[in-house]
Write a protein that binds this DNA or RNA. Structure first.
Length: 163
DNA sequence: CCCTAGCGGTGCT
DNA sequence: AGCACCGCTAGGG
């Protein structure tokens, strides 16, 4: 796994690439931003290409715009159930939402809404796998592993109303 | 608003 | 094999 950084107006994201693609994306940390390494060092040329695509995707996602091109996503860390949930998340267009229960139904486990919440929390590539577009059934915001402030901000940037 | 009961995947013992 | 977590939900004060 190779690590690289993506500078944005909202801070510096951290991306981890395996030999299969983008495997993890981390939101900017509140502190410790000072230490800046050269981004891209230690990446293969393929990974550097993925990094460019990822950086574009992240910047577009932050503006609430549709993402034109995704890097390959390496979701092999997830269980089969988690991967099915994440796949379903990827089908939610910007500006749209689903409830945890709806995702549960879509992956064929209609009573597993709670487990869907857990699977969302385990999403290793938030923002690009848009777990922020999942709300509770009553349109309350639910949770977000990266912090509720981020979820609110992302939903607002997409013009989504929530409770 | 609160509380309760039922829920299922996951990870830890 | 248990068991305690949880980004849940529906129902009822």
């Amino acid at each position: 796994m190779a690590t690289a950084f993506i500078q944005t107006s909202a801070g510096r994201f951290t991306a981890h690439f395996s030999d299969r693609g983008l495997a993890r994306l981390e939101f900017p940390e509140a502190s410790g931003q000072a230490a800046c390494r050269r981004t891209g060092a230690g990446l293969t040329s393929v990974q550097r290409a993925w990094l460019r695509i990822t950086a574009r995707a992240v910047r577009r996602a932050l503006k609430g715009e549709p993402i034109a091109e995704f890097p390959p996503l390496d979701v092999s860390s997830g269980t089969e159930f988690q991967q099915r949930v994440w796949e379903e998340l990827c089908r939610i267009a910007p500006g749209h939402t689903r409830s945890y229960a709806e995702i549960a139904r879509l992956v064929g486990r209609p009573t597993a809404a709670r487990a869907v919440g857990r699977a969302c929390g385990a999403n290793p590539i938030p923002l690009l796998i848009p777990c922020h577009r999942v709300l509770a059934a009553d349109r309350r915001i639910g949770g977000f592993s990266g912090g509720l402030d981020w979820k609110r901000r992302l939903l607002e940037s997409e013009g989504v109303a929530f409770n």
